[in-house]
Design a protein around this nucleic acid. Structure first.
Lengths: 139, 139
DNA sequence: TGAGACTTGCAAGTAACTCGCAATTAGGCT
DNA sequence: AGCCTAATTGCGAGTTACTTGCAAGTCTCA
């Protein structure tokens, strides 16, 4: 029942929709609001898209999920506990790879030291060309 | 007249709209399509927004401009020759700072060595909190 | 100068959210 | 256990930021 309490603990009401949205985000890893809605509809067909949007926002406010910009405009949501990696988005094939935050540690520190800028590397994706596409491209 | 040839050289037709869009991007540094349109309207009031979008796309295809995602969904355009810096977007105040690409060199290399991922650091903004907001936040 | 391809302007269309509001429902209280 | 109030949901309309189809206009090259 820890699952029921984490929402209550944050001062949120425990509604089926809310639980399902959170569960969907966790299960999907990273997903657009649309994908979350689709997932939730498997068990709760009537859920409205705006409810999904509002719940994602609410859950984000209390720190249970976070969104990341992977490009093209739309945001994708992650469970907060999974946000331990950064996203490598390939501009050619569109794939999204992961890399541990550590690889960016130097970069983050440099920005902090030189510009006082406190970087959240997970919020935006890192754009480039993945190894597969790079190999294909340069052939 | 080099200005007229650079478009022709790329195999593009030289239309007033096209020139003005390119000039606007250069003058504005970084701008949304909407801002480009507004700028162009100062000298060419009738220009249509879709013409701006299409020209930005065309100019991007031939490498004269590039777009960057600064968050919130919209893209901003830059003249290709100005893309020598990365963008530090503050999530609190929304300001966009610049930093030379060099600070990311280590990071880019690490990604290349460990993941074969060829990063284009200028394409996506770097998200975080600027020094001013960080100071204000932690008070 | 003339033909043909490329461009533009315009209007309608689409995608992805956002907002207002009435009906519903969770939770604390008694 | 039942009630009351505020939070939440569903729904429809509205908004924002582009995208697309097409006819009319314009640039190039021969």
């Amino acid at each position: 029942m820890a699952d029921q309490h984490e929402l209550r603990d944050k001062g949120l009401r425990l509604t089926p929709q809310r639980e399902l949205v959170l569960a969907a985000v966790r299960e999907l890893g990273h997903a657009t609001p649309e994908e979350v809605a689709e997932k939730v509809r498997q068990t709760h067909p009537g859920i409205n898209l705006s409810t999904v949007y509002r719940n994602l926002e609410t859950l984000e406010n209390v720190g249970l999920v976070q969104h990341t910009h992977l490009g093209h405009g739309g945001a994708t949501y992650h469970a907060a506990e999974e946000l331990t990696h950064l996203h490598l988005v390939c501009g050619v094939c569109g794939s999204v790879g992961d890399a541990p935050i550590d690889v960016a540690a130097n970069f983050v520190n440099a920005l902090a030291d030189d510009y006082g800028f406190k970087t959240d590397v997970t919020h935006f994706a890192v754009y480039g060309t993945c190894s597969a596409c790079f190999a294909a491209e340069s052939k």
